[in-house]
Design a protein around this nucleic acid. Sequence first.
RNA 1: GCCCCCGUAGCUCAGCGGAGAGAGCAGCGGUCUUCUAAACCGUUGGUCGCAGGUUCGAGUCCUGCCGGGGGUACCA
Length: 550
Amino acid sequence: MIRDAIATLVRDAAAAAQREGEIPAVTLPEVLIERPQRAENGDYSSSLPMRLRRAVGGQTNPMQLAQAIARRIDASEMVREVVPAPPGFINFFIDDAWLQRQVEQIVEAGPSFGTNPSGAGRRVQVEFVSANPVGPLHVGNGRGAVTGSTLAAVLEANGFAVEREYYVNDAGTQTDTFGRTLYARYEQQFGRDVPVPEDGYPGEYIVELAGQIKEEFGDRFRVAPAAALKELGIARMLDSIRDDLAALGVRYDRFFSERSLFTDHTYEKTMDLLRERGHVSEKEGAVWFTAPQLGQDRDNVLVRSGGSPTYFASDIAYHYDKFVLRAFDRVIDIWGADHQGHVARMKTAVDALGIDPERLTILLYQLVTLKRGQTVVRLSKRSGDIITMREVVEEVGADACRFFFLMRSPDSAMDFDLELAKEQSNENPVYYVQYAHARIAGILRKAAEEGIDCTAGDVALLRHPAELALIRSMLVYPELIEAAAARLEAHGLPHYAKQLAQDFHVFYTECRVVSEDAALSQARLKLVKAAQTVLANVLGLMGMSAPERM
RNA sequence: GCCCCCGUAGCUCAGCGGAGAGAGCAGCGGUCUUCUAAACCGUUGGUCGCAGGUUCGAGUCCUGCCGGGGGUACCA
C-alpha cells in the first residue's frame, strides 16, 4: 500500500538523520501519513516534524526537521518529489508514470483489487439482527442487517475468516407469549372466541399465520400439545425472516438456536464456570450475576425466582459457546441502541468467564425513523400496523435500502425517507453511483462493437487531469478497505463510491473514449476497465448490484 | 437522577489531533449532432450548540452547561 511505503520512507529517513546527528536521538513518534486536502500540498504528507518537536524539546524548528528528513528521501519510481513545507510538513508527490501504470495493476487484480491479507485467516464472528422470531423484521432490523453484512464483507476483504450468525431466541418468554397468541388466533380460525392474551401480540401477521396453519394442517393443533403449535409458528416466522433478509441481499452462515444451549448443556457448563469463579449469588429467591471486582456495580438476575433463566443468562452461555467452544478469535455483536444497557454487563460477563473482553466488540446502531417526505411513519411492533423491513425493501429496492443505511454513521439516529430513497433522480445518490457503472458498460459495449482491443494500450497516454484524478481516486480504495476494517465502520464505503463515481463522470464528460485516435482509445479503454473493476468491487462490498444498463 | 448517542451551510449529512472547514440536495446561471443529460461546469451559502481546558496545532481529545434521541425490569 502506498501509504505504508511512504511511512517507511519517512521512518527510515528520520532514523538516518538521527544516526547522522542532525536530529536528536529520541524515540520517534508513530509516523502517520495523511492525505492533504489541497492538491498543492501533494498526494500524501507527514506531520512527523511537528510531532517530533515535542520529543526533542521546544527549541528545534520543525521546518529544519522537515528539511533534514525530506533531504534523505530520494525520488523514486513512485515518489516524484518530496517537499518540506511550513510549518513542518513533509509533502509527497506521486509520479504520473507510476500512477498510469497502476491502471494495469488494477485491471490485472480484478475482483481482488483493494483486498489485503492482514487478517491472516483469523476467525471472526459477526452476529447481527438476531431479532426474536415472533414477528416480522422492522426497518431498524434492516439497518443492523446492512451494517452487519457489510462489515462481514469488509473483514473478509481484509483476510479474516468471517462467519455470519443470527442468534435465534427460541427459548425465552417472548416465544411463549407468541405461542399463546398464535393459539388464540388459531382457535379463532375455528370460530371459537378465544381472546388474545393481554400481553399478547396484536399484529395481523399472527392471524395470517394461524390461517395458513389451518389451511395446511386443519385442526391437528387443536388437540396437539400447545408447544407443537408454538414450534411450528416460530419455524414459520424464522423462514419468513430468512426470506426478508435474502431480499435485502443478506445471507448467514448459521442460525444459532438459543434452545440448543440448554439441550447440549452449554448453559449448565457456563453457569458452573461462573459459580466456580465466584460470580454467582442467591438472594430473594433468584440467582444473580455478581462481579463488583470487575466494575459491575449492580447485580443482575440470571435465574428468576420462578426458576426460569433470563435472556442475560443464556446470552452468557451463548458467548461461552462463541469464545470457548467455537474458539472465535474475535466476536462482533451488532445491536440496536435499545440494547445499550446490556453492553457493559455483557462485556463484564465475558470477562468473568475468564475471556479477554477485548475479543468482544459490541457495535450499537442508533434507531431509525421511517419517513415519507415530512411525515413520520411510526414503526411499532405492538401497534399491529407494522411497517416491515420487507415492505420497505419492496418499495425502494434492496440497493437503495443498503446504500441509505450505509451512508450514515451508526452513531447517528437516522431518518429513512421512503420518498427520497425511491426517487429516481439526481436527488438520489444510489443512481448516481450505479449510473457510472452503467455508463462504463455502455463504453465497453461500444468498444466491442468497434472491435477495439486494449491489451496493447499505452497507459502513458493518460495525461488528462480528469484521467489522473480518476486514477488517484481508484487508488484510495485499498486504503478505504483497510480503514473500514480497522475502525469497523462501513459508512465510508458509500461516500467513497460517490466520489469515485463523480471522478468517473467528470472523466466521461471530458474524455471521449472511443474516438478516431486509436492509440488513445485503447489507453482510455484500459482506464475504463480499471474504473469498472473498482466501482464493481465497492458496490459488491456494499452488497449492491452493478447494473450494465439503466 | 444515572448511562449511551447526536448537535457542522436552508435541508440531509461527511470530516484517522494537522495546512483558507467539505459533499449531496435545495437556490441561481450555463452545457446534449457524440460511448446513456439518472451527467457535467460555474455560483450563492458557516460564530462547527455554548463556555472553559489540554496541545506547536482542536470541528476532532478532556470537563461543565444547553438542546434532541435512546436506555435505565426477576422483557428481550
